[in-house]
């Protein structure tokens, strides 16, 4: 028992080491904060993209439907690692797209865009399942009183689609939270999985505790999101 507490004590010393400037060498909370920020920005982007794409998929214009379907299929089928690597190696390195000079900002923004594009396709699918909960007759009734397609989408179909898609949107968000760790392959070195890899390299004797730390960190983030999504999906469900 004593030996175990001793071991925990040494792990605590390991994770609270500071460099000569007094900064934490392994900034675990800071790393989680990076992933949370990646989640928030790319989640927002994915939700906006998903909404636009699902509106295109139900639109009366065939070419818009085709573009939306193509987007959904492409980003749903490419592995996320490939998308993120392409953002870094193709968009940044080859095409030279930058965002304001600092490399760390570029990598962050590119990771957000990659994560957003990828999860946008899942958001679109989640929203489409929501659209399917809205009886077709309501869209017809909307057209019958003279609403245009855009008005009917905005005021009748999509509000109900969102409320009917809370659970799948929540699932996509949870997948996104965990998938933000893939940003490490896009040179976002301050996020959790990069931090974890560094810790394992220099503290292999703590490997189990290191995994446990990060696993529990994600569990602590995901549980409230899951609970909230379950609660909201009940509360917001449209009575039919």
């Amino acid at each position: 028992m004593e030996a175990f507490f001793d071991y925990l004590g040494r792990y605590w010393e390991f994770i609270t080491q500071r460099d000569s400037d007094g900064d934490l060498i392994y900034n675990i909370l800071g790393a989680f904060w990076v992933n949370i920020q990646l989640t928030l920005w790319s989640g927002l982007l994915a939700l906006v993209l998903g909404t636009v794409v699902v509106a295109m998929r139900i639109s009366p214009i065939a070419s818009l439907r085709a573009v939306a379907t193509a987007y959904t299929n492409i980003f749903r089928d490419i592995p996320l690692t490939v998308v993120i690597l392409m953002m870094w190696l193709v968009v940044w390195t080859q095409l030279g797209v930058t965002f304001g000079g600092k490399m760390i900002t570029d990598f962050f923004v590119l990771a957000v865009i990659g994560l957003g594009l990828y999860h946008g396709s899942f958001m679109a699918e989640a929203l489409r399942s929501g659209v399917n909960t809205v009886p077709l007759g309501q869209a017809e009734a909307a057209r019958a009183i003279g609403l245009t397609f855009m008005q009917s989408a905005r005021m009748v179909v999509l509000p109900q689609a969102f409320r009917g898609a809370v659970a799948p949107i929540g699932n996509t968000l949870i997948a996104l939270i965990k998938n933000t760790t893939v940003a490490s392959v896009g040179a976002v070195s301050t996020e959790t999985s990069s931090t974890m890899a560094g810790m394992i390299e220099f503290g292999p004797q703590f490997i189990f505790l290191i995994f446990l730390t990060f696993a529990l960190g994600y569990v602590a983030i995901v549980i409230p999101v899951g609970t909230l999504s379950t609660y909201l999906s009940r509360k917001l469900a449209v009575k039919r």
Binding site: P135, G137, Q138, E140, A141, A144, Q160, R163, K239
Partner: peptide, 12 residues
């Protein structure tokens, strides 16, 4: 004006 068999009121 159009009235449908299944009412089609906006449920939300």
């Amino acid at each position: 004006g159009m009235v449908f068999q299944s009412f089609n009121l906006f449920a939300h």
